[in-house]
Design a protein around this nucleic acid. Structure first.
Lengths: 191, 191
DNA sequence: AGCATGCCTGACCGATCGGTCAGACCCTGA
DNA sequence: TCAGGGTCTGACCGATCGGTCAGGCATGCT
């Protein structure tokens, strides 16, 4: 089935995103994706080296945004870290709902793949920032629950519009995160 | 390898719980479980009819507790529904951390299996109760985020002792859930 | 016309999956 | 001593997985 415009590659990427989000990475076969696109499995593997390459490419934008968010957290402490991390992560989660849904539940094993090796440390830093770098168990637990809940929630609320989901999540984060003092020794704007 | 005591069945169940929680239901093969126990795959299938039977049996206690929690929610409205659902679900999540981790991420497909057909509706009612039966998007979103976050959080904090995790989660739920009025027609002392 | 190139496909591969089956082994009771 | 039943296993099955490969077809350049 020859395409008039060679946009097959993009269709494969879009179909893979939908299928991975719906049934997981392991739960989706290359044949599933090919069937949804309307091409053969061999065509999928013509455009992408292998199944993992398909995954890494569709995750790339979300990972780039996660990386830049992580960069913007360096040096922040206390409430500044909490608020920046919360607002940034909510933005990310709302924008990349499907991509986050892909990782849902398969995080541990997918993170073993070299392309995602650094994500684990980023998410740990994110959790730490959400806890305001506090060592108190309550703050750490709240941060993880919020992080996981937002990821899962965005994936589930695919039908809720962004401008309704985002403020609701921001308000929730404001209530849920344990208040921590601004730990900077000199209480200027910067640490 | 003959066991002196025929406790192989229990060992298989325990190994399956660990493996399912670590790598997911689909991500764990019967051979994986057999290897961890130290028996053959055929032995696993001698004690359990098939892979699904293994899953349903190890999930049974958690499901029973979920069912009874669901029963205790009927007729409750407003804050009473919120508080009962929150406390009950936190109890359940803390106690059955590994079992909940099993379902992590594979919820949608696992729920298709007949043994779990009713869980979806229970979890929807749970979400509704956590939202205080409010139709406001903020309340619904907060309920889902908390539900998902607690499930994920308990699965992750396997090393945190129960009596530390439980109060932290309860405090978090108290902060995070949107306050709703007590919808009972007669407004007593409880707001 | 002839050729190269990009896109696509059916046929095929080895590995692994869940599951079946005949039979070996061991204990117990008659 | 032997029969029987509970436990366990290696060998095997069909299905499906991710991935490879040679070749077909349309197009564009020379």
């Amino acid at each position: 089935m020859r395409r008039t415009e060679p946009e097959t590659r993009g269709e494969i990427l879009a179909a893979a995103t939908r299928r991975f989000a719906a049934t997981g990475y392991r739960g989706t076969s290359l044949q599933d994706i090919a069937t949804e696109v309307g091409c053969s499995k061999a065509t999928v593997l013509y455009h992408f080296a292998n199944k993992e390459a398909l995954l890494t490419e569709l995750m790339a934008p979300a990972i780039a945004m996660l990386q830049s968010l992580d960069d913007s957290l360096v040096g922040l402490t206390g409430r500044a870290a909490q608020q920046t991390a919360a607002a940034g992560f909510i933005d990310l989660a709302v924008r990349f709902r499907r991509e986050i849904a892909v990782l849902r539940g398969e995080f541990p094993e997918l993170l073993q793949q070299p392309a995602f090796a650094h994500i684990q440390r980023i998410s740990e830093r994110m959790r730490d920032a959400l806890a305001g770098h506090s060592a108190q168990p309550g703050a750490r637990i709240a941060a993880l629950v919020l992080l996981a809940g937002i990821s899962e929630g965005c994936a589930e609320f695919v039908d809720v519009p962004d401008d309704e989901l985002r403020p609701a999540l921001l308000a929730l984060a404001g209530r849920a995160l344990e208040p921590v003092p601004d730990q900077s020794p000199t209480q200027d704007k910067e640490t």
